[in-house]
Each structure stands twice: as structure tokens, then as C-alpha cells.
Design a protein around this nucleic acid. Structure first.
Length: 481
RNA sequence: GGCCCCGUCGCCAAGUGGUAAGGCAGCGGUCUGCAACACCGUUAUCACCAGUUCGAAUCUGGUCGGGGCCUCCA
């Protein structure tokens, strides 16, 4: 089965056929750099990260562009509030964004252009649109003539009459039509500006993406992505600008990720339920955050809550436990020539899931089954002496790691990940490793002495405090309850 | 008001015409001094109503409930 992608433009899943066989051009709207990124940005970027990774895994030569919008009203306002230069502010938050994305384990896009690096290209597009009568200069601004573009609103599927009821012309704007939007804005005193045929000014919000995408990917390219909220007006306006200027279809597939709610409510600053990535990774492992996001389909809304994140942590630790057990089980076993089909079977299911509009939730379900199969095989009697079982576990182990990497998971060493996970939980329980170790030592002695009453007492005490003891042939270990 | 989405086991979550993946929790086993871990087994007819169909969670209409966009927003 080939790859199918849900296209916002058509409203349905379509078979993916790139413009140039074997190659994919993908543009994703990045962030406006005026503040720290929140969990919603984390989701959007993780979603497109796995799309990028999966396309690459599926054999495509992918060019992935994700921009920084580094000039905009919000940046200027924030910089003014802080009394610093807007360029300085943008630099600060570009750095913060890069750090956050690295923390979340995102692969680097092929290009990460900045709007301010494409001012010349932006001016060229404005000129073309003016020459074609699609745009007009007015008092140092340049506006797009929305009613000249027949396909306007084809992405968001709205209609003009109704839109116009809510549209208005802000003070200082000199538009012919309230629906028209700015391609270029005249600079007010103290604002960052660039020379242009219409006087000093700066780009409007949407034009930079038209400029950057066509410069780096060509006038037509395969995939354009972003959050749902960008469908209107941002992406609609990009289509209007690019298609009118180039007279070619813009992006072929439009992909939009769903929102993140917080405790069942829309995340918003006014509700005070705004979580930055920095806040979250103080409490939760970044990989847990990624795992949580990928356990739902990218177009569904997800609910961010402590409980859901804790569930995700349990799920991820199940994988790491299985991965660790598998590595230990086959360690030192001689290599053999026994063939195993299990890895290939798992990979086939994984691909089938991912080919269906990047269904990571289903894909992870299959990986869980792979983990369970490993555990089952390892548990069989005389496992290490059975070449076929060893071969199966080796195969599955390698496959789970390989497929995990495609969705950015399981990249840590299982032992250290599990240790870190345990230690992180300890601080909230008010108990130290030394304390636990000494209890284990005491209990071991009690067990040797067959003093099971004392032994059980120690175990129960620890359990009440949130620590679970695990006895095995090699000794006693512990984990968080 | 306009446009759009959703309602699947206690919780999370796949499934979009052929009789319901997976995870967490639960229950019954195996293992264990007893447990835990792991494994095995087990647990839903899909908000409601009416249609279409040989057959629907999946299509159509309606009802109820929840949410989003229409202004900056991932």
C-alpha cells in the first residue's frame, strides 16, 4: 500500500504522488520568535519531524524547510516593552527555539530561513502582484486585492460575504476592501525597516512564506504544513500571493496538525493554562512528551494533563524495560544463521500504519506488540540455548530500535533512561537511593535468615512510600510504583 | 450567525461498509517463600433515534452533548 495523506485542500486522504518522483519538497510554517515555545509548538514541530523522518525512511529525498518569522508586530511590541532592539529579541528566541527543539529530539530541517533574509524576494513578489493588478500600493503600504483572486478561500472553504461581515479596516490602513491584506507595511518611527519602492517598510505577515518557499523549493512543491489555526488567514493568503504571482499551483498537499488542550480546555494565556516547553521538561522527560504526542493521531485534538503524561511515561518505560531485557537476554549468545521473520513482519505493519496518513498511534500499537513478543520469547525455558528464539529476539530488538528511530523514540540507552526516570521520581517521594539500598540490604539478610515477616514488612513499608521491589536471580532491584 | 470537527471498554486511543488494534487500570492463571516484574487468558457492538444496505462504529437524516475557526495564534 502506498502512502496516503489527508489534504486539507480536498478534505480527504489522497495517494501521495510527489511532483518529481522520489523527491519531496516540504515547507512548514515555523514560529514567530517573540516568546518561548509552548506545548502546542512542540506538537506541531514533532508532528512534522516524524513526517520528515518517515518520508526519508520511505526512500524519498526530502527537502524540509522550516522558517523563522523574525520581523512582525508582536516582535516589535515585545522588544519595545523590554527596551531592546527587535533584532536582538528575535535572536534570543531563535536560540531558545533551537534549544527547545534539540531538547525534544527533533531532526534539523534542510533549511531554516529567516524572513529578514528574504526581503529582496519579498519586494519582487510585491512588484509582480502590483504589475498584474493583484495588489496596490497605498500610503506606503502594499495590499493584496483579495477579490481579484478567484480561488480565494478555497483552502478554508469560507465565503466572502460572511467573512466581510466581520472584517474591518484598522485605523491608519488605507485599503480598498476590508478583506484585503497587507503585503508590505510602511515603517512607523522607530520600527525596523528596509528600503522599498514604496518607502521604508517591512513585510506583512504572509508574504515571507511565499518568498522563502519558492526560493528554496520552487514555485510548486509537495507538502505545506502548519497548525490548523494557520489555515485562515495565513495559508489562504499564501496561496493567493503565490498562485497569483507565479500562475502555477502552489503546494500540492496541505497538512495541518490538531490542537493541544490543557485539562480539556483550550490552551490560552487568558486562562492561565499556558505551558512552555521549558516548564514541561522540568517535570517530564522530553521523550515522554514526544511519546505522548505520537500516541494520538496528528489531526486529533489531544489533552495535555499530568495524568495523560504519566500514562505516556508508563508506556515508554515499558518499551525501555523490554529493550533492556532483550539486550541482556541475547548478550553473549553466539551469532547464528537462523532466519527470523519477526522483524520484517513488524516493519511491514509499521509501514502500513504510517502509510495511512502517518498513523503513529497505530504504529506504536504494533511496536507494543513487538515488545510483548520479545518479553514472551525471553521468558521461555532455556531461551539462551535455543538458536531460533535468540535469532527472533535479536531481530525484533533491532527492528524496534530502527522503527523507533523513525518516529524519534528509543534513542537513549535503556539502562540510563530507566535510571534517570527512577531518580527523577524519587525527589517527589521524599526518599533517597541510599535509604532504599540500605532497606534492600537489610531485607536480603532477613530473607537469608528466612525471616519472611521482617522481609515483607520492609517491602510493604517501601511500597507505601511509592517504591516497588523486584526480586530476581541476580538480586533485588526497585522501581517507582 | 457562517464554516468545520468530535462523541469507541473505568481512563488514554486506533479503526471510516463485512461482525471492534494497542497502552494503563481490573479480574483469573503461570512464575514466586509471599509479592512485584514478565508472560498467558479475560473484559466494549461503538452518545441516542430513524433510514440506506445482504451487512454500518464506519453512509444518510435528525436529536443530545463537547470542541474549533471566522481577530494574533502551532
Amino acid at each position: 500500500m502506498s502512502l496516503r495523506i489527508y489534504n486539507t485542500l480536498s478534505g480527504k486522504k489522497e495517494e501521495f504522488q510527489p511532483l518529481v518522483p522520489g523527491k519531496v519538497g516540504m515547507y512548514v510554517c515555523g514560529v514567530t520568535v517573540y516568546d518561548y515555545c509552548h506545548i502546542g509548538h512542540a506538537r506541531a514541530n514533532i508532528v512534522f519531524d516524524i513526517i520528515f523522518r518517515y518520508l526519508h525512511f520511505a526512500g524519498y529525498d526530502v527537502t524540509y524547510v522550516r522558517n523563522y518569522t523574525d520581523v512582525d508586530d508582536k516582535i516589535i511590541n515585545r522588544a519595545n516593552e523590554r527596551g531592546i532592539d527587535s533584532k536582538e529579541l528575535a535572536e534570543e528566541f531563535i536560540r531558545a527555539f533551537d534549544e527547545d527543539m534539540e531538547t525534544l529530539g527533533l531532526a534539523k530541517p534542510t533549511y531554516e530561513p529567516r524572513a529578514t533574509e528574504y526581503i529582496d524576494e519579498i519586494i519582487v513578489i510585491c512588484n509582480i502582484l502590483i504589475d498584474k493588478g493583484m495588489a496596490y500600493a497605498s500610503g506606503g503600504d502594499v495590499y493584496y486585492r483579495v477579490d481579484k483572486f478567484n480561488d480565494y478561500l478555497k483552502l478554508s472553504k469560507r465565503n466572502m460575504e460572511e467573512m466581510q461581515a466581520g472584517a474591518r479596516i484598522a485605523p491608519g490602513e488605507q485599503k480598498e476592501n476590508p478583506m484585503d491584506f497587507a503585503l508590505w507595511k510602511a515603517a512607523k518611527p522607530g520600527e525596523p525597516s528596509w528600503e522599498s519602492p514604496w518607502g521604508p517598510g517591512r513585510p506583512g505577515w504572509h508574504i515571507e512564506c511565499s518568498a522563502m518557499s519558492s526560493s528554496l523549493l520552487g514555485d510548486s512543491f509537495d507538502i505545506h504544513g502548519g497548525g490548523r489555526d494557520l489555515i485562515f488567514p495565513h495559508h489562504e493568503n499564501e496561496i493567493a500571493q503565490s498562485e497569483a504571482a507565479n500562475e502555477k499551483p502552489f503546494a500540492k498537499y496541505w497538512v495541518h496538525n490538531g490542537f493541544v488542550n490543557v485539562n480539556q480546555e483550550k490552551m490560552s494565556k487568558s486562562l492561565g493554562n499556558f505551558f512552555t516547553i521549558r516548564d514541561i521538561v522540568n517535570t517530564f522527560d522530553p521523550e515522554v512528551v514526544r511519546f505522548f504526542i505520537l500516541t494520538a493521531h496528528y489531526r486529533s485534538p489531544i489533552d495535555f494533563s499530568d495524568g495523560n503524561l504519566e500514562d505516556a511515561a508508563s508506556g515508554l518505560s515499558r518499551f525501555y524495560e523490554a529493550l533492556q531485557a532483550a539486550a541482556e537476554a541475547v548478550e553473549g549468545c553466539p551469532e547464528n544463521d537462523v532466519a527470523s521473520e519477526l522483524g520484517a513482519q513488524l516493519e511491514a505493519k509499521f509501514r502500513e500504519a504510517m502509510d495511512d496518513d502517518f498513523n503513529t498511534a497505530l504504529a506504536i500499537g504494533h511496536l507494543f506488540e513487538g515488545a510483548r513478543t520479545m518479553n514472551r520469547l525471553i521468558g521461555e525455558k532455556k531461551f539462551r540455548k535455543k538458536a531460533d528464539l535468540v535469532a527472533n529476539v535479536r531481530d525484533l530488538h533491532r527492528t524496534v530500535l530502527k522503527l523507533g528511530e523513525v518516529i524519534g523514540l528509543f534513542g537513549s540507552d535503556p539502562h540510563s533512561w530507566l535510571e534517570t526516570f527512577k531518580l527523577a521520581g524519587l525527589s517527589s517521594l521524599g526518599i533517597t537511593v541510599e535509604e532504599i539500598e540500605s532497606q534492600i540490604t537489610e531485607r536480603l539478610q532477613a530473607r537469608k535468615d528466612k525471616d519472611f515477616a521482617r522481609s515483607d514488612e520492609i517491602r510493604d513499608e517501601l511500597e507505601v512510600r511509592g517504591i516497588m521491589l523486584l526480586d530476581s536471580r541476580e538480586g533485588t532491584t526497585w522501581k517507582l510504583k
